[in-house]
């Protein structure tokens, strides 16, 4: 990728707090227009990474470019191209939704229409309500609205759908797809793997401050991890077999046992693959004490 096509470029990124290494050399690029998800357990380094890229934290080592600028030295013009949805909102909120959005829109050179953004996050009925009187999920939608009102080129979403009900989450996905169609580059962290699968072009799994895997969501994990499992019950004992040819295994079973009890063929979900990635990383760490 040339730098003109790259929205975010990170190489060998490290971050230490005293003796604790929160990031141990993370490398990835995000292309312009791409939606990229950072997955990982709590404390894996997702938020540290995103906050370094947003300019909130200084890195200890490595390189980082965000829209062509070192985020440690990003000025106002650089910030005008970013939209940031932080992990926690929790503002006192003695202003109404519309007042807050108007105030923030005012900060950007070319903002979206406030009413359009309020409609986009489904808060038309609450536009005149003070933010402190909203529910948690509604406040989160205000956060998202504040993140997109400045018409950002690059949008950071740090666990954006925490506290959303399933319906709001689906609606939020639609909103993100719309932004993506507009060419917005999006960096998303999430605990919800279905969310990453729904939205992102590529994802990276972070564990213990290291990048464990990166790629299009459906290619994550070792190939073996995606091998289907045939499971059945034989003489009251649950048996299972991993096989790339589940049809043949079932045919053999049928030939041997007749109709097998409790037969199922399971393709590992993204969640299974993810959990396997993280736990195999953790097993490795135990074997090689730091």
């Amino acid at each position: 990728m040339t730098s003109a096509d790259t929205a975010v470029s990170v190489e060998g990124l490290t971050k230490s707090y005293g003796a604790f290494a929160a990031l141990k050399g993370v490398t990835f690029d995000i292309a312009r227009g791409e939606t990229f998800a950072l997955l990982g357990p709590n404390g894996a380094g997702k938020s540290t990474t995103i906050e370094i890229l947003e300019g909130y934290r200084d890195r200890t080592g490595g390189e980082a470019r965000v829209l062509g600028v070192d985020p440690q030295h990003g000025g106002l013009e650089w910030k005008a191209k970013l939209g940031i949805v932080l992990q926690s909102s929790g503002e006192s909120g003695n202003v109404t939704v519309r007042e807050q959005l108007t105030e923030f829109a005012n900060l950007y050179p070319n903002p979206r229409s406030v009413d359009e953004v309020i409609a986009a996050v489904g808060l038309e009925q609450k536009a005149g309500t003070r933010i402190k009187n909203l529910s948690g999920g509604q406040r989160r939608r205000v956060d998202v609205a504040l993140g997109v009102v400045g018409r950002p080129e690059l949008l950071f979403l740090d666990e954006p759908t925490t506290g959303f009900d399933p319906e709001a989450r689906r609606a939020f996905w639609e909103l993100i797809r719309g932004l993506k169609r507009d060419g917005t580059t999006i960096l998303l962290t999430t605990h919800y793997l279905d969310e990453a699968a729904q939205l992102s072009d590529r994802a990276a799994v972070v564990a213990g401050g290291e990048l464990v895997d990166i790629g299009p969501v459906h290619t994550l994990g070792p190939d073996e991890a995606r091998v289907p499992i045939v499971r059945w019950s034989e003489n009251g004992v649950v048996r299972e077999q991993r096989t790339p040819d589940p049809g043949r295994v079932v045919a053999d079973l049928f030939a041997r046992l007749g109709e097998p009890a409790a037969l199922e063929i399971v393709r590992p979900s993204l969640e299974d693959i993810y959990l396997e990635l993280v736990s195999s990383y953790e097993r490795e760490q135990e074997q090689v004490p730091a």
């Binding site: 005012n106 997109v148 797809r177």
Partner: peptide
């Protein structure tokens, strides 16, 4: 929630300034 439109009604000139005028205007609004 609905999708946001693509249209970009007022593409501001790139030099539309991050200077003193903007600082004062935003200060007044604050």
């Amino acid at each position: 929630m609905t999708a946001l439109t693509r249209t970009n009604p007022s593409p501001s000139s790139p030099a539309a300034g991050f200077g003193v005028g903007r600082t004062l205007r935003l200060g007044a609004s604050r």
